[in-house]
């Protein structure tokens, strides 16, 4: 199954393609240029993998939370692609993608609690807690937007996200608890792809059913 993943929800614009067990990926941190970059990225990946766009069997997209316009560019592009190619899609959380990445960095098979906090601007973070074991990722708290001081950091094994890079309360925590962390990072389409690919058939849905996740009121 050939799968495409794209993510334009953060400052990083990324695309990844899975063809015959090979992963191709492209990303760039270029805020405000995602609309112009994303289709050329996909073009490049298709060329590298030597397949035509009509051979894409499904698409994965980062549905947020993130920059409102960025999230909509990703969802809009996937709407266009899925309609044209008549294929199904899976929308994934940008926060969950980071949790998955952090867990993989831990290189363990044990259950771990991961806290994700990304910078939501306006003195707030998007945050969530996950419990992960192997490929099973369970939500411990709902995704929320809040002040950085309201992020529940108790008993976490690892934390990830730009929030730990930006907000003093979270940076402080990082200093006190030198656990495995990765703060100066963005969600990536390749992680979305790796996280979803084996489950795509079970998770796939009609493109009209996917919606951006904003968390914050307009």
């Amino acid at each position: 199954m050939n799968l495409l993943a794209i993510d334009t929800a953060t400052e990083c614009c990324s695309a990844a393609l899975w063809v015959d067990g090979m992963l191709y990926q492209r990303s760039a941190v270029k805020p405000r240029l995602h609309a112009e970059l994303i289709l050329p990225f996909i073009d490049e990946l298709l060329t590298q993998a030597h397949i035509k766009k009509s051979k894409i069997d499904g698409i994965i997209v980062g549905q947020g939370p993130g920059a409102f316009t960025g999230v909509r560019i990703g969802v809009g592009v996937v709407q266009g692609l899925a309609l044209a190619l008549n294929i199904k899609v899976v929308a994934v959380s940008n926060l969950k993608t980071l949790a998955y990445r952090a867990y993989n960095k831990l290189s363990t098979c044990e259950r771990k609690t991961i806290v994700v906090a990304t910078d939501a601007r306006m003195n707030e973070v998007y945050s969530v807690r996950y419990s992960i074991k192997g490929s099973v990722i369970s939500l411990l708290s709902k995704e929320k937007v809040s002040n950085a001081s309201e992020v529940d950091l108790t008993g976490c094994d690892a934390y990830i996200g730009s929030g730990f890079h930006v907000y003093p309360e979270l940076i402080e925590h990082k200093k006190k608890h030198p656990m495995i962390f990765e703060t100066n990072t963005y969600s990536q389409a390749k992680d979305m792809l790796l996280m979803v690919k084996d489950d795509f058939i079970r998770l796939k849905t009609e493109v009209e059913k996917i919606e951006p996740v904003y968390l914050r009121e307009p």
């Binding site: 909509r72 560019i73 592009v77 996937v78 266009g80 044209a84």
Partner: peptide, 19 residues
């Protein structure tokens, strides 16, 4: 409106590209 325009252009341009 930039945000509003980008919805139509994202869907429209990718639809055209894929077709």
């Amino acid at each position: 409106l930039i945000g509003a325009l980008l919805v139509g252009s994202s869907v429209g341009c990718s639809l055209a590209w894929a077709l």
